[in-house]
């Protein structure tokens, strides 16, 4: 890493850390990672431990967040649910970011008919009410977490493609690209070695915000019964079960919902913080 790049990263880190809310968000995200990895060590229960003698118990010292209609520990299921959320968030956004970045790079760099075809395809995809498209595909297949992640990814790449394309349009006329071309670098080398690193900031920001969106989408699909299938715990399907007991077991509905809310806010704060840190125009320091 050259001196200037390390200086660049130092500036970004400093600007990110100057944003108090972004740091809180990053802290929560880090905590969620740790919780997901250490899940079995954090709780004495297993997520599918049935206990017919301790059904629908309110929060207590033995069960901090109570038990559900099958006597399973709610806190344990929320902890294991964090794993699902993390997986869905990262895999689906990874798919979306990959497709969007590649499409945006090629559309922006080559222009012409490649650009036309790719961008019209983006327009077409944007016409579908995404939620309808997702439900329709899942209705055709059997609901499974892999289909969910793939379909969220395949319906979420259009924004990234547009942003990257716009970035590439301005980058491809810069001197360093012309220089690379002058010394005979291939198109692919120019695109992936010279342009891509400079077009990454909007991808990183959109991807971070996208994780929040993917987690919300997964929970909504699971809530509707076509996402992650019981008995695998997901925050969304816990709420489905909880709504039948709303009147006498509020803890079944409150805590998974709060888990989603806090996680989504955390990713949004980090995303907004990154946007401000990476974009020189919003600089206030």
């Amino acid at each position: 890493m050259s001196l200037t790049t390390s200086y660049f990263y130092r500036v970004i880190v400093r600007r990110f850390r100057a944003n108090r809310f972004a740091v809180y968000g990053a802290g929560i995200v880090a905590a969620l990672f740790i919780i997901s990895f250490l899940a079995p060590y954090l709780t004495p229960y297993a997520p599918d431990d049935l206990d017919a003698y301790h059904v629908l118990l309110p929060p207590s010292t033995a069960h901090w967040l109570g038990t559900d209609e099958l006597g399973r520990d709610v806190l344990t299921r929320i902890i294991y649910g964090a794993r699902i959320s993390l997986k869905v968030g990262f895999v689906s956004v990874g798919i979306a970011a990959l497709i969007g970045t590649v499409a945006g790079l090629f559309a922006g760099y080559y222009g012409g008919w490649i650009d036309q075809v790719l961008m019209r395809f983006v327009d077409i995809m944007l016409c579908f009410p995404t939620f309808f498209l997702m439900l329709a595909v899942i209705a055709m297949l059997e609901p499974s977490i892999w289909y969910i992640m793939i379909i969220i990814g395949l319906t979420g790449w259009m924004g990234v493609a547009r942003l990257v394309r716009a970035e590439v349009l301005s980058l491809r006329e810069r001197d360093f690209v012309l220089a690379a071309r002058a010394i005979g670098a291939s198109d692919l080398r120019i695109i992936f070695v010279h342009i891509l690193p400079n077009a990454l900031s909007p991808v990183i920001v959109t991807a971070t915000l996208g994780v929040a969106g993917a987690i919300l989408t997964e929970s909504a699909l699971s809530f509707l019964g076509i996402g992650v299938q019981p008995p695998v715990p997901s925050w969304g399907n816990m709420l489905t079960a909880g709504k039948d007991y709303l009147e006498f077991a509020w803890w079944l509905s409150l805590f998974p919902g709060l888990a989603i809310l806090v996680t989504v806010i955390a990713y949004n704060l980090v995303g907004e913080g990154l946007r401000d840190a990476l974009d020189p125009r919003t600089s206030r320091t």
Binding site: A212, L216, A220, L246, E247, G257, N268
Partner: peptide
Amino acid sequence: VFLGFAVPTFWLALVLMYIFGV
């Protein structure tokens, strides 16, 4: 407005149904 953006709408709907309806 950020709270509104981050809150899972189906969950908020449930909570409000419980408070105002039940």
